[in-house]
């Protein structure tokens, strides 16, 4: 398909001398306690407006979202856990393919799927196309109670009503790191997204998957690592790790006829 070639029409031409990164994550599900620190930090870092009264868990903006899961066994033996879901930063993003006005693009330098809210006109086709439900629509005007605007992060532009947004691995932090690298004249930089920093159990490992020696590359290759819905061919760059088989089995839908519905609610 034509769509499989990365769309470079509006991307800045890749300069040959610049390092090409593939930022990715490995989330250790065994370490996740479902505390929600990543969700909170994410919202603060990315200037997500406080939820209005009418907002439900289906209309809110949670660029990082922690889902409760279990192994669907009867109660006394049931095992439970949590799956934090940011954008999977697919290498072949279904959302980029469908956006009619190139408001979504895979950054050739960082491997991050960028969302340009200022170009988005809110058709929400990308939300329909994303199997990970990682995209969120601004159903209302973002508003901060008086005084709270002081808490806004100056490195990140708030999004207006009527556009789609999603996790972009804290591009505010990425830009700061890039700026600093330019000042230093050193292309060898990395950075840490807010959720990674906030996780009290250090369940999230972040880094450049292109760098063979990085911890994230090593972990991604671990036999206990997996990606969600790998059969769809979207090539996510967010990996999950678990030493428990039932958690690894969450990767794909059960094809054997066992009920596969989640009985719990989101955290």
């Amino acid at each position: 398909m034509m769509a499989n070639t990365p769309n470079t029409a509006t991307a800045a031409p890749v300069q040959e001398n610049r390092k090409i990164r593939r930022f990715g994550m490995v989330i250790n599900l065994d370490n996740c306690t479902g505390c929600g620190s990543c969700m909170m930090t994410c919202a603060v870092e990315n200037n997500c407006a406080p939820a209005k009264e009418k907002i439900t868990d289906r209309t809110g903006i949670t660029l990082m979202r922690v889902f409760p899961v279990n192994d669907r066994q009867p109660m006394p033996v049931r095992q439970a856990g949590f799956v934090p879901m940011p954008c999977m930063q697919c290498e072949d993003p279904p959302c980029e393919l469908v956006c009619p006005q190139q408001a979504v693009e895979l950054d050739p330098l960082s491997g991050i799927v960028d969302q340009m809210p200022q170009r988005c006109f809110g058709c929400r086709y990308c939300m329909a196309a994303c199997p990970y439900h990682a995209r969120y629509f601004n159903w209302y005007d973002p508003e901060w109670p008086k005084g709270m605007e002081q808490t806004l992060n100056p490195a990140v532009a708030p999004r207006m009503r009527g556009v789609v947004e999603k996790c972009d691995f804290c591009h505010g932090r990425l830009h700061l790191a890039e700026d600093q690298a330019a000042i230093d004249g050193n292309d060898d930089y990395t950075y840490t997204p807010a959720c990674v920093e906030a996780c009290p159990t250090q369940a999230i490992v972040f880094g450049d998957l292109n760098d063979e020696d990085s911890e994230v590359s090593q972990l991604a290759k671990d036999p206990n690592s997996f990606r969600f819905l790998a059969k769809l061919g979207t090539e996510p760059k967010v990996y999950y790790y678990s030493e428990h088989e039932w958690r690894r089995n969450l990767a794909e839908r059960d094809m054997n006829g066992n009920a596969s519905r989640n009985e719990g609610k989101e955290a």
Binding site: M2, T8, A9, T10, A11, A12, P13
Partner: peptide, 15 residues
């Protein structure tokens, strides 16, 4: 899309 927009590159699709 158009040559005068930043970062424009012709592709077969555009043509």
């Amino acid at each position: 899309m158009f040559p005068f927009v930043d970062g424009f590159q012709w592709t077969f699709g555009h043509i």
